Amino acid sequence: MKRQDFRFAEPLRVRWAEIDAQQIVFNAHYLSYFDLAVGGYWRAMALPYVDTMAALQGDLFVRKATVEYLGSARYDDQLNIGVRCERIGNSSMQVIAAVFRGEELLVHGELVYVFADPKTQQPRSIPADLRAVINGFEAGEAVVTVQEGAWDELGEAAAAIRQTVFVQEQKIPAEMEWDAADATCLHAVAYNRMGRALATGRLLEHVPGVAKIGRMAVLPQVRGSGVGRAVLEALMLRGKALGYREVILHAQLSAAGFYTRAGFVQRGPQFEEAGIGHVEMVRLL
Rank of each mutant, 00 (worst) to 15 (best):
A44Q: 06
K64Q: 15
I134A: 12
A54Y: 03
R124V: 04
G140E: 00
V218T: 15
A188Y: 02
A21D: 02
V222A: 02
F8N: 08
L204H: 00
T164A: 15
E10T: 01
G277N: 13
P269K: 08
F34A: 03
D59Y: 13
A128I: 09
L56K: 11
I88P: 09
Q57T: 13
S92D: 04
E156T: 15
Y259N: 07
D76V: 15
H108S: 13
Q252A: 09
K64A: 14
A255E: 08
V67G: 01
F271A: 06
D117N: 14
A37V: 04
L203K: 00
E177M: 06
E233N: 07
A256I: 08
R238Y: 05
M93D: 05
S125R: 15
V189P: 06
F137L: 06
F8W: 10
Y30H: 06
N135P: 04
L219T: 12
L60T: 01
I213N: 00
Q78Y: 07
R63H: 10
V144G: 05
S92W: 09
A116D: 04
S72I: 03
E233H: 15
T260S: 09
W16A: 08
E177A: 05
A160D: 12
L12W: 14
L47E: 02
V210G: 01
R74V: 02
A116F: 10
L130A: 14
E138M: 07
D77H: 08
E205I: 01
L70S: 08
